[in-house]
């Protein structure tokens, strides 16, 4: 078995991110920055950054520092790179060595990133099923794979970033955050998300934000809110968020 200690890993990383953020509820972007800083440090990387897919195009929204910010900007400018592939393909893109021919498709990004001193980059999609929000990039100066533990941590950081981005899209009371989407697969939540998006003619991301906001306000578990949506006993409307 590969990652038996996931709960402990998650708890430890959560504490590190909280400490980095200095506690208290700031805007999502400062939480995202804290996630990037800790991710970079924990994964033995030069830095980490988050790119979001918005209606206006790709946008770098957080980075552990100016160096990483520049690398994220490079992907946005080139319109290519691991972050963008991770989001489009819906799975992590693990580039163990940028010199590998496999990555030759990135004619603009690969040489420029190498010139900046990057040899390995690992991108984790920030998504819930078909709802694509962005991706988390981790940059390393030396070639080589992530260990399985580092891979697990990368996925956890992407989860943290997902929750931060979802919280950023809703008006949660200060100091509180909606229930995290970190529990193992619950089909009810995703079916309810699809239902709500059709009921209210909204996107999947907003539908999930609405479900989480309702769960938070009504002190229910997300799965229980989903149950009520699926059984038709609850219908969200414009006043619920």
């Amino acid at each position: 078995m590969i990652w038996a200690d996931m709960a402990e890993r998650r708890a430890r990383l959560r504490a590190l991110v909280a400490a980095q953020k200095d506690g208290g509820g700031g805007p999502a972007s400062s939480l995202l920055s804290a996630i990037c800083v800790v991710a970079g440090r924990e994964l033995g990387a030069t830095g980490a950054g988050v790119i979001m897919m918005t209606e206006a195009g790709w946008r770098g929204v957080a980075a552990s520092g100016p160096f990483t910010e520049g690398l994220e900007e490079l992907q946005v400018l080139c319109g290519e790179g691991p972050c963008i592939d991770a989001l489009l393909l819906g799975h992590p893109i693990l580039v163990e060595d940028l010199e590998d021919r496999v990555w030759g498709d990135w004619t603009g990004y690969a040489p420029s990133a190498q010139a900046a001193g990057v040899r390995a980059v690992f991108a984790f999609p920030i998504q819930i099923g078909a709802a694509r929000l962005g991706a988390l990039d981790v940059y390393r100066p030396d070639p080589g794979p992530l260990t399985s533990g580092e891979l697990a941590d990368g996925l956890i950081f992407a989860d943290f970033a997902l929750n931060a981005l979802l919280d950023g899209q809703q008006s949660a009371p200060p100091g509180q955050s909606a229930p995290d989407l970190e529990d193992a697969f619950d089909y009810r939540i995703y079916q309810a998300q699809g239902m709500v998006s059709v009921q209210l003619t909204i996107g999947l991301v907003e539908a999930m934000s609405r479900l989480r906001a309702y769960a938070l306000v009504s002190q229910l578990r997300l799965g229980d809110v989903a149950d009520r949506i699926l059984s038709g006993t609850l219908q969200l409307d414009g006043d619920d968020s």
């Binding site: 393909l89 799975h91 099923g129 709802a131 699809g194 239902m195």
Partner: peptide
């Protein structure tokens, strides 16, 4: 990568089942 992709596909299918059912 493959495992992640398969699991993401399953989430998308649940989202679509909910949307289509509605």
């Amino acid at each position: 990568e493959q495992l992640q992709k398969a699991l993401t596909s399953r989430i998308i299918i649940e989202q679509a089942k909910g949307a289509l059912a509605q």
